[in-house]
């Protein structure tokens, strides 16, 4: 770095990136693989993980990672594609978890039904409850969403409903261990690529416009609250989906579903993985959650650990790993004389 003032760093797109931009990339294996290899590695890697990792315990950890990855995806989408920073991921997770718990334990619906119903119904309920907050901006929305899970946590304890502090027990697990490992992984893949699709559609364009500049969208005769509500529904449905899966893995639903862990770890994963990239948060979870599992023996030290990592990343490398990796993949850097 210290090469004096007369040098500056120049970044240029790699030739292959430019060549593989259009339809012609289909003509050459090299360019085709440049485009598809990262995606294939991600998909195959995820699908192979349950086979590779040793033992039940780590297979279970992979499922938990996927739960967090869905939450992180929902946070990333809301914060960086819609401009609503939601600090209450636990609220989504808890809503989905409790709904599936009630459906399964009280009404006896099998997981095949209870999980999708919990995702859709939970998404609707979360959206309805957040509807009054949707016009709020920035800090106000962040604070109010941070308070939602805490509020429902205390309310459930105070009213002693939904099992109170004991929670709801006797919930069916996934049918078979293979389903338990692969369902979350497949959900993550579907959601990830679905979201990537979504942000490139006209709807995604509107979301980005709302994030960039809500006033101009209003001045264009568009009701932004509708778009914000749709975005919140998509994100909360994803969060509820993760909660529903988690409940069926744990076979238990309780107020710890609303714990701050579920709000803060996805945020940490997003910051570490690269905010706004959608893939980054998922990878961030694959880094953070296993490490925090390794530290489980040290009790709450793992929270200290990932809180500190979060601070370090915010302060030192706020772009995140994924943005860094993408830049290295697509561009080369060199020092040029000025």
């Amino acid at each position: 770095m210290n090469r004096g003032h007369e040098y500056r760093k120049e970044r240029l797109d790699r030739g292959i990136k430019v060549r593989s931009d259009g339809l012609y990339s289909l003509m050459s294996w090299r360019e085709l693989s440049y485009l598809t290899l990262p995606r294939l590695i991600l998909i195959c890697g995820l699908l192979l993980l349950p086979v590779i990792v040793p033992g039940m315990y780590w297979q279970r950890v992979i499922s938990i990672v996927c739960i967090y990855a869905l939450l992180a995806l929902s946070f990333d989408f809301l914060a960086y594609h819609l401009g609503l920073v939601c600090l209450g991921g636990a609220f989504f997770l808890g809503t989905g978890g409790y709904i599936t718990a009630v459906l399964n334990a009280t009404f006896g619906l099998p997981p095949v039904l209870s999980i999708p119903i919990a995702a859709i119904a939970g998404g609707l309920i979360c959206t309805l409850l957040l509807l009054p907050c949707i016009p709020l901006r920035g800090v106000y929305f962040a604070i109010v969403t941070l308070m939602y899970p805490l509020f429902f946590d205390r309310l459930i304890v105070a009213l002693d409903v939904l099992g109170g502090t004991d929670g709801i027990m006797g919930i069916e697990s996934f049918p078979g261990s293979q389903a338990q490992y692969y369902v979350p992984i497949l959900l993550v893949l579907v959601c990830l690529f679905g979201m990537r699709r979504l942000v490139n559609t006209d709807m995604g364009l509107m979301f980005r416009a709302v994030r960039d500049n809500d006033q101009a969208v209003r001045a264009s005769g568009i009701n932004i609250n509708i778009y914000k509500a749709i975005g919140v529904f998509i994100a909360s449905a994803m969060g509820c989906l993760s909660g529903a899966c988690l409940v069926h893995i744990y076979m238990w639903a309780g107020i710890s579903l609303l714990a701050l862990d579920f709000s803060i770890l996805p945020i940490a994963a997003t910051v570490i993985g690269g905010s706004g990239t959608l893939v980054g948060p998922v990878l961030g979870c694959f880094i953070l959650v296993p490490i925090s599992e390794l530290l489980r023996a040290f009790g709450t030290l793992r929270i200290v650990f990932y809180a500190l990592i979060l601070v370090a990343f915010i302060v030192v490398r706020s772009e995140g790993l994924m943005v860094y990796a993408q830049r290295k993949y697509h561009q080369f850097e060199r020092w040029v004389k000025v």
Binding site: A209, N213, I222
Partner: peptide, 17 residues
């Protein structure tokens, strides 16, 4: 107040939508 992260012509796709 443009949409900073969008190209100029895409800025107009928003109102046209």
């Amino acid at each position: 107040r443009p949409y900073y992260s969008l190209p100029a012509y895409k800025n107009l796709v928003v109102p046209l939508f």
